[in-house]
Design a binder for these strands. Structure first.
Lengths: 338, 338
DNA sequence: GAGGGTTTCCAAAACGTTTTGGAACCAGTA
DNA sequence: TACTGGTTCCAAAACGTTTTGGAAACCCTC
């Protein structure tokens, strides 16, 4: 029942382990006849290399790591499965395995998870998502000179590879278009964590408002969790203002859905009374009512870009850090006419 | 820059590698004073064990594998992230890593993915989801006598551990209640793949119909993809029947949402004109309109059960296969009044 | 001073692979 | 004959850890 090793094949054939190994690897210093014999015997005996042993010897694991920051037990992120599919499919095609760890963000557990993967040489490289302001993970990986790629830029001038979506420009455009159709009091539902993408989006928001000489009431910028409930609560808070906004931008589609629910409870209609704009374009965005106007991120492709870049980095094929800034696509549906 | 090894610590202290190893592991055959010295030095030198080497020596990887069957590039499954959170959090707590592979179901790639993980000793055990009729994966793992746990039962009398939700009973109840409120023409939107859970649910459906002496029109049982579009198409087909059903059961909430969309396009209202019942209770089920009546699966807990069981199995703490059949909870909302 | 027990340490083997640095042999050439 | 070059093979080391089976040193006791 125990697994067949190179040694077993070697003994059976009266060859050395070296020769068997090199025969299977296709080296030219083994006679074609011998090679065939080894191949056939390996097949017969059901040989499959022990990957752990191979990894130890080769000093690489052919594995990439991905630490998912999870909020609470009921963690449900529609983007996540798609991102993982993008990463996983490409990794598999390139002969890499994917190690996934789950931890709550910005905790000691998270730090330990990264330490373990990096210092324990558990993986050859890491993919980071949702970069944060002054991100400890980025700092750590730079210190350790460990290969990694992020989805999202960082705050400083650190040199590393990233893929990002230009939320600043996207939000700038959307706000412009909202203003063009008559909106003046425009709110922004921000996350309750210092996530980088929210900073960029806020910058775009402020730039567009300033560009049209519109004042920004700071109470229009509300911080809540990136969930439906967060969007619901945020919209409630906005509706309680003396003069509520007529348009609301959110940081993901779940928030937008929650915001719409809050409107409906007050008898208001998203898209008519208040414009609501989401972000991401999750599959459900077009199926809810009113259908969501949103900024689409090509998340599967982003997963592929991240993985492709990381593998290039691991293989040493990257001389300079790689940067890719994708433009989000504005998808106009019913929740905000633009 | 190269990593610190046991040997480096040993040489620094003039001890043997054995002693350093045993000191760090807390064995009693090393003097307390020496142990402290080793601990401190290891700390100073920034020692972290090479996990690959440890795995090779210990002949186990402390890793569990999870192969995700992915349909098409735009793979978005709201349950998936929650299941993964359940598995991942428990695995981390028990000191296990999680290796995730992605492949399309029932392909050669899938077979190869399993072969690689099992034969290459890449993981200590596997978690399988969405068991299929005559599941090749189950057959393979039984043959290889490899530890695994499935979400979903199988067709035969194979002995292995599983966790499942009693869809047969759940659907039986729902159909009963639909009949109680006056429905007679009840349809069932099935997946287009031979997934076990669909078989059980169909059995419950037929049993309830038979129990009330209601005929089952075979054209009421429609096979489509487990997606919104699948649900949309399926409902369209049902509406084209000479006398369409007045109630429709689906195999997941996405399908139900698609079905509702098809109704709306024809000016029909789910919950009034046609009752629509989902399955799973994804977070969005309560937020769409009409809110979804559905059968809730406690997916995070299922992930934990799967992981807990697998780890017990790996550790040899399980004498008999473990079976857990959970009851789904009927969540009545607007799309079907029960 | 012999025997027994305890404490503390370690050399060597093992896990299964890949790589290094030849060695042995043969054929062809000067 | 002696040398060169090519082909085919292999012993040994290496990757970094844990475990095995002692050994050395010391202290007690009779």
């Amino acid at each position: 029942m125990s697994a067949v090793r190179l040694r077993d094949i070697a003994e059976r054939l009266g060859l050395s382990v070296t020769t068997v190994s090199r025969a299977l690897a296709g080296y030219s210093d083994v006679a074609e006849q011998t090679r065939q014999l080894v191949l056939q015997t390996a097949q017969e005996m059901g040989y499959y290399p022990n990957l752990t042993a191979r990894h130890l010897q080769r000093q690489r694991t052919d594995t990439i790591g991905f630490v998912v920051d999870i909020f609470g037990p009921r963690f449900s992120d529609p983007l996540f499965s798609e991102l993982l599919a993008g990463i996983g499919n490409l990794a598999a095609r390139e002969g890499f395995d994917l190690l996934v760890a789950t931890t709550p963000p910005d905790t000691d557990d998270e730090v330990e998870a990264y330490r373990r993967l990096v210092r324990g040489r558990r993986v050859d490289g890491l993919i980071l998502v949702r970069t944060r302001v002054a991100d400890r993970r980025v700092q750590f990986l730079l210190e350790q000179q460990f290969p990694f790629v992020t989805f999202g830029r960082s705050t400083g001038a650190e040199r590393f590879s990233w893929v990002d979506v230009d939320g600043e420009r996207g939000v700038y455009e959307v706000v412009n278009r909202l203003i063009a159709v008559g909106h003046q009091r425009i709110a922004l539902l921000q996350p309750d964590l210092p996530i980088m993408f929210a900073r960029f989006r806020e910058r775009g928001y402020r730039a567009a408002m300033a560009h049209h000489d519109l004042p920004v009431n700071e109470s229009w910028i509300v911080h809540e969790a990136l969930t439906e409930d967060g969007g619901y609560r945020g919209m409630q808070r906005l509706l309680e203002l003396p003069s509520p906004p007529t348009a609301v931008l959110t940081n993901n589609d779940q928030m937008a859905i929650g915001a719409i629910r809050a409107l409906q409870e007050r008898g208001l209609r998203a898209g008519h009374d208040v414009a609501v704009v989401g972000f991401d374009d999750i599959p459900l965005a077009r199926h809810i009512h009113p259908a969501l106007t949103t900024l689409r991120q090509p998340i599967y492709q982003i997963g592929q870009h991240l993985c492709r870049t990381l593998i290039a980095l691991i293989r040493g094929e990257l001389d300079e850090p790689f940067h890719l800034l994708l433009q989000p696509e504005i998808v106009v549906r019913e929740s905000a006419r633009l």
